[in-house]
């Protein structure tokens, strides 16, 4: 039985700067060099002006909870072990249309199931933390 957590795509070169940012402890967002529009998930072309020039910008690492769910089994084994847990979508403080999917945790390395789901509210302010999961680093979120 596969008990591992799912991790990101190491074959796809496009998002690698994002994941390398996580390794360094910074939450990045892709930004268009031509029109300065931010975009997430990363992609080669700006959806607003079609420029192919982009770079990566450090974010505030702060946001608010835009929505959340609480998955219950049946789930993959590694997730069943911590269910029910939360999954949140966070809207970035400086650009509410930039959103990240993650988990609300009590500290970077805490179990995904430690926050009581009944206490989670849309609009709650959160900040990013980084957790080492197997051989990658994933962004997670704590209350602030």
């Amino acid at each position: 039985m596969d008990t591992t957590r799912l991790t990101h795509d190491r074959e796809d070169p496009n998002p690698q700067p994002f994941w390398e940012g996580c390794e360094r402890g910074v939450l990045l967002v892709q930004i268009c060099e031509a029109c300065r529009a931010r975009r997430m998930p990363p992609r080669p072309m700006c959806p607003r002006c079609r420029s192919l020039e982009s770079r990566w910008q450090e974010t505030s690492g702060r946001g608010t909870i835009w929505s959340f769910v609480v998955p219950h089994p049946p789930l993959l084994p590694a997730y069943t072990a911590v269910a029910p847990y939360n999954v949140i979508v966070v809207a970035l403080e400086e650009d509410e249309n930039i959103r990240y999917v993650g988990n609300l945790v009590t500290s970077a390395d805490a179990s995904l199931g430690e926050v009581d789901p009944a206490t989670i509210r849309i609009g709650e302010p959160v900040r990013v933390v980084f957790a080492r999961v197997e051989d990658v680093t994933l962004p997670r979120w704590v209350r602030r």
Binding site: D9, P71, V82, V87, Y100, I122, V136
Partner: peptide, 24 residues
């Protein structure tokens, strides 16, 4: 692809994805 932004957090199934929009 797109799953790398959601699956690691435990958003595993279509129901989790639609539940997120539903809550909002």
């Amino acid at each position: 692809g797109a799953w790398q932004w959601t699956r690691p957090a435990g958003m595993l199934r279509p129901v989790d994805e639609i539940a997120m929009l539903t809550r909002r």
